[in-house]
Each structure stands twice: as C-alpha cells, then as structure tokens.
Amino acid sequence: MLQVHISQEALEVILNVLDDIKKKTVHHKFENQYDEILFFKYTKPKFVSKLIYYNQIYKIETRKPYGGERVLRKYLLKELNKLKRFFDDQLEFYKYYRTGSTYLDHKYFVRNKHDIKLNLSTRYFETDHRFSTSHDYIVAKILANDLIEVFLEDQLHGLERDEIKTVKIPKSKMNWTGSKTALIELVYALYASGYINNNNADIKLIALTFEKMFNIDLGDYYRNFLAIRIRKKGRTQFLQELQEDLIRYMDSQDE
C-alpha cells in the first residue's frame, strides 16, 4: 500500500524535525509577545498539521475494510463525518481563526496564558506547556483536516466515477444565472433532506447532476458550504428568498 509507506516515511521525518524545533523553542526567549504569537499561531501548526495528516492517513489506509464499493464508501463517509464533528465542536474558534481575528491571540497563542472559559481541550493539560499554547494544536488540526478532507473526497470520487458514468442527463438548454453560492445552498438543502434516492445520494452526485442540468461548474462547493455555515446571519439566505418568491407568486395568482 503506497500511501501507508509514504505516511510512515513522512512521520519519521516530521517527528525528527519537530523534536529539533521543540529543543530550540523551549530554550529560546522570544523578543516580544507578538513573535511568540506568530510562532504558535502560524509556524508550529504548519509542522504539526503534517504530523496529524500523515498519522491519520496511515490509520485510514490500514483500517480500510475488505468488501465491495458500498462497504468502502460507508467507511470513507464515516471518516469524513469525523472531520465535520470536529468542525462543529470548534465552530467558534474556527470562525475566529478563518476570519483572521486577533483580539484573543494573547490567550490562544501565548504559553501559560490559557483561559479555562475558552473551550479548552483536555489534551492541552497533558502537553508540555513549554512548547504548547491552549490553541496551537487546534490550528494544526484545522489545517490537517483540510488535507484529510481532500484525501477522503478523492477516494470517494474514485468510487463514484463508474456510478457517475451511468448518470444519463441530456444536454440542457437551461443555464443557472444566479450565484454559485445560491445553487450550492440548494444542493445541500436537498442532500440534507434525504429526499433523493431514499437518503442514499452522495453530495457529489447531486452536485454533478445540477452542474449538468444548469451548465455550471460549482467548483469547490464544500469549501463554499463552509463559508455559508459560518455566516453571521442568514445561513439559509437563498432558501428564504425562494420561499418569499414563491409566496409572492402565489399571492399574484390569487389576485
């Protein structure tokens, strides 16, 4: 298994690099708090995220069940759902980090400045606080999950190629003239409803069907969906507009 061997070799290299970085960091005095924040918010997580990524890929590959396409698909979707659960658990911090906020950096990314009220992971209390802050590992986990998600999506895409080939959709003369984000919101609404194929339709298959139907490339719709999820208000903005449009149309027909 190529991925297993690659992961093993990568883990050995990264562990050695991190060990060297730790030895230097614990004896290093940062010139100011800003430099310390930069290191624990951006530099260290880049290395730790690769450690998390290759370790998780190793586990995913070595635990793959034997069986047909259905069994493997179920396994991969379960792994994908683990990433989504982490996202849900860390939603507030995810929004803070992804929006480039800095007002809590002095608590998140400075050693021995943790705040018990800021949703601390139990893992933090077991780490070496000379080389850890309360949230640098969470940043690394976010970065790693981005890569793991791509890996899992690629695996699922490989399983779906044959299934997609069987989807016969005649060339459409209809074009989507709204925003991609609006259509992605609709696609996910249908996926979440479970009304397609008795809740057995994969999100990629639904998205592909809409792409063919309306002659549009939705691009990285999962990433776009994450942006929809962290909207401050109006997470279902397009669906609400659709409801209002339909009600207006019904009212006009009653006149």
Rank of each mutant, 00 (worst) to 15 (best):
E69A: 13
F86W: 15
R85Y: 09
T62S: 12
N145K: 09
F151E: 04
K107N: 13
T122G: 00
Y58L: 11
A144C: 05
K78T: 15
R85T: 13
T62A: 03
E149T: 02
V71Q: 15
Y103Q: 11
E69H: 11
H114P: 01
K64F: 13
F87H: 11
H129L: 13
L120T: 06
V150D: 10
Y108F: 13
K74G: 09
L120H: 07
Y96N: 06
D136I: 13
R130K: 13
L76T: 05
R85Q: 13
R63I: 05
S134R: 00
N81V: 07
E149L: 03
I57L: 07
I57R: 01
L118C: 06
F93Y: 06
V150M: 07
V139C: 11
L143I: 12
D115G: 00
L83N: 02
T127P: 01
N145E: 15
H129T: 09
A140I: 05
Y66F: 08
Y103I: 10
R123M: 09
K141E: 14
G67P: 09
L72K: 14
D128F: 08
G68P: 11
L118T: 08
K74E: 15
E61M: 05
T133Y: 12
Y103L: 07
L91T: 03
T127N: 11
Y66L: 10
A144K: 02
D128S: 08
L83W: 01
K74Q: 14
N119P: 01
Y108P: 03
K64R: 15
E79N: 09
H129C: 02
K84Q: 12
F87P: 00
Y58K: 04
N112P: 00
S132H: 11
G68W: 10
E69G: 05
I142V: 06
Y137R: 10
V110W: 02
L104Y: 15
G68K: 11
R63Q: 13
E79Y: 07
Y97Q: 03
L104S: 07
R73H: 07
